[in-house]
Design a protein around this nucleic acid. Structure first.
Lengths: 201, 201
DNA sequence: GGACGATTCCTAACCATGTTAGGCGAAGCT
DNA sequence: AGCTTCGCCTAACATGGTTAGGAATCGTCC
């Protein structure tokens, strides 16, 4: 039987190794694109051979899964910070949420691709990773509720709207700001449709 | 030198073979998903071995390219038909375009994935295939111009809106009709923002 | 202190898939 | 008939995910 202290030390080493592998995976994805993320390349960056990664992750999908969870957790942190200083006016709240999402989505292409479940064929996140995404959505729902928007359809519409703009940004003007301008118009369209009062100047 | 009649006959056989291969590729994609589209599988369905496909397509990407062109050409035909009986009221025109796109996009998942350039890594359509997509966009721009919408930003916004809803449909409610209902709301939002007159009952 | 057990890395290899090389046979041209 | 062309074949290669099995390391226990 392993002693408690040892188990703790070992699990810390395990965690460190996992973190290092994930960091390498992110580096590869950012430098050469998600498509270039190969086990042999990741392994090389941490001074290992590909099969050794299996001591830390059950499969390549497990690495994707961890990255997926990390990305959503990252977004959750950013959103949490933003929620603490929410404007008073509902319309400004919408704008804030929209901008936050858009900035996060357009700041890092591989991260954004990874957060989209359609990107990796046959990928389904683990419960744990998926919970990170759900947490974000719960926070979003709470904020929306605080300005009186609770209907599922209203929430879905807002998400589709902002998501469509972020995707269009990547598809049609990566690196530019063409859709950032449209974002404000979209938010206003949406706010008008829901009869939110205009902003004070 | 080959005789004229023979060349013609041979090129017809070549075309027939290409069509057969593409049909098999579509069948595989629809039955087992885009990810299951493998050269060996396609070849098997047309009674060949994988390398023989290279007599008809330069690479797997060339097959994707042909499928991409076909998909957009298909949409172009559908759009052309719709354009011939456009309603008189601008708002109804928008609704018509939106519904048309949404229905086409949600009718066939692999086709929709393929029409999105992000789906296949490192895929860039040939000029010829891309022209099919451009043709669709030109038609769209013409119709929009006919109801007085010409600004690039207005067009981009509409496309992002409808595209976002179609993507959300696939992501969150495949097989359902949750986002079809939202489509009409989105169109109205957009039409209101552009001060289009309401529809007559 | 030495044997045991777990852990972690390695090499070798397997399988799937896109792709290339090279050959064989049929079919048409001259 | 002889030559060329074409379409298909088999064999093989490169890459990439994965598995099998072994060796080294390190903490634990007698």
């Amino acid at each position: 039987m392993l002693g408690e202290a040892t188990a703790d030390w070992q699990s810390k080493r395990r965690e460190a190794a996992r973190r290092e592998i994930l960091a390498a995976a992110w580096a590869v994805a950012r430098e050469n694109g998600l498509g270039a993320l190969t086990l042999r390349e990741v392994a090389a960056r941490v001074g290992m051979r590909a099969p050794s990664l299996y001591s830390h992750f059950a499969s390549k999908h497990a690495i994707y899964d961890a990255m997926y969870g990390q990305a959503w957790a990252e977004y959750d942190r950013a959103a949490e910070a933003a929620v603490r200083h929410l404007p008073a006016e509902p319309r400004r709240v919408l704008r804030e949420i929209a901008r936050q999402y858009f900035e996060f989505a357009t700041a890092d292409m591989p991260r954004h691709q990874l957060m989209d479940l359609r990107t990796i064929p046959d990928f389904t996140p683990s419960d744990e990773s998926y919970a990170c995404a759900v947490r974000v959505y719960d926070r979003f729902r709470t904020v929306m509720a605080s300005i009186g928007i609770t209907a599922d359809e209203d929430l879905d519409l807002f998400v589709a709207l902002i998501g469509g703009l972020a995707d269009s940004q990547w598809a049609n003007d990566p690196g530019g700001d063409r859709y950032a301008r449209l974002l404000d118009r979209a938010v206003d369209m949406y706010a008008d449709a829901l009869h939110l009062p205009p902003e004070e100047p």
